[in-house]
Design a binder for these strands. Structure first.
Length: 262
DNA sequence: AGCCAGATGTCCT
DNA sequence: GGACATCTGGCTA
C-alpha cells in the first residue's frame, strides 16, 4: 500500500479553503508484527482507529505539539497503517503558507520574541533568499516559511499545511463528499507502470520554480520510487519501509532517532 | 552534520 | 511517577 500511495493527492477542504498535496514520502507500519508501530502492544484509546476499517485517518499528537496522519490499510481487526510523511502542495498554496507561517509566529511569540507580533498574512514568498538580511528574518519572526518545498515537507508540516488535527482522527478518506479525501494523482502509476494522464489536477499559479521544474520533469519521466529505513524510530530501525519519489525536493531529510537526556 | 529545546499525551512500572 | 515519543526549527561547527 505504501508505495502505491506515492503520487496520490490528499485534499482537505475547510471553511478557510482547499489545500491539496501530492504525496511524495510515506512509511509503512504493520501493527502486531512491527515493534515500531503504535499498535504493536495491542489496542489502546489512542490507536483504536487503526483497528477499524481501512481508508480512515489515524491522527496522533506527539512531542507535545505536533500532529501526524496515517491511512489505515487493513480490514477491521488488523491494525496496519501508512504514515503520510511529505507532499508537494498542488492546490491552495497561499492558504498552506499562511497556516505554516502562523504556526511559526506563534512558536516565536511563545518564547518571547516581540518581533513575531508583526507577522500577518502572506510572507516573503517571492523574495530571493539572497535578498533577505538577518534583520529581515528576525523582523519576520525569525522563521517565515520562504520556500514551497517546505510547506508539507515532514509529517507534522504536512498536517499543519492541511489543517489536520485530532478533529480528523477517524475521518473516511474515501467518501466523495468528505472534506478530507485521498485521490489518484498525476504521478500515480497505472497497473502496467505507465503514469496516468487523466485526472491531473492543475497546479495553482504560485508554485515556486524548483517545484515547477520538478513537475515538468515528472510529466516526462515516470517517477522512480526509493526505499530506506524509517525516520525517528528506535525499534526495527533497519526495516526499509520508508518510500519516497526519488530525487523529489519535498522529501524530508533523514534523521536518526536521538533519545532525549533526562 | 550534530546538538538542543519545546510541551504534553500516552503508556509503562 | 516517569520515560519517551512516526517532530520541527534554531543554533553551532
Amino acid at each position: 500500500m505504501a508505495p502505491a500511495l506515492l503520487g496520490c493527492v490528499l485534499a482537505h477542504e475547510t471553511a478557510d479553503g482547499l489545500v491539496a498535496v501530492e504525496l511524495t514520502e510515506v512509511e509503512a507500519y504493520t501493527g502486531a508484527t512491527d515493534p515500531a508501530s503504535h499498535a504493536y502492544r495491542g489496542m489502546t484509546g489512542r490507536n483504536a482507529i487503526m483497528f477499524g476499517p481501512p481508508g480512515h485517518a489515524y491522527v496522533y499528537f506527539t512531542y507535545g505539539m505536533h500532529f501526524c496522519v496515517n491511512v489505515v490499510c487493513q480490514p477491521a481487526g488488523t491494525a496496519s497503517a501508512v504514515l503520510l510523511r511529505a507532499g508537494r502542495v498542488v492546490a491552495g498554496e497561499p492558504l498552506a503558507r499562511r497556516r505554516r507561517a502562523a504556526r511559526r509566529a506563534a512558536d516565536v511569540r511563545d518564547v518571547g520574541v516581540d518581533a513575531a507580533a508583526g507577522v500577518t498574512g502572506e510572507v516573503t514568498a517571492d523574495v530571493p533568499a539572497a535578498d533577505i538580511t538577518a534583520a529581515d528574518v528576525t523582523a519576520a519572526g525569525a522563521s517565515a516559511v520562504r520556500t514551497a518545498r517546505d510547506l508539507a515537507r515532514g509529517p507534522a508540516r504536512l498536517c499543519q499545511a492541511l489543517a489536520i488535527t485530532r478533529a480528523q482522527n477517524g475521518a473516511d478518506f474515501c467518501v466523495p463528499a468528505s472534506p478530507l479525501r485521498l485521490l489518484p494523482g498525476p504521478g500515480t502509476p497505472s497497473v502496467d507502470g505507465t503514469p496516468s494522464v487523466d485526472g491531473t489536477p492543475s497546479v495553482d499559479g504560485t508554485a515556486r520554480d524548483d517545484i515547477a521544474a520538478d513537475d515538468a520533469r515528472r510529466r516526462q519521466v515516470p517517477p522512480a520510487i526509493s526505499a530506506g529505513p524509517r525516520v525517528g524510530v528506535t525499534a526495527a530501525a533497519e526495516v526499509a519501509w520508508r518510500f519516497w519519489l526519488t530525487g523529489d525536493p519535498t522529501v524530508s531529510a533523514y534523521r536518526l532517532h536521538k533519545r532525549r537526556a533526562r
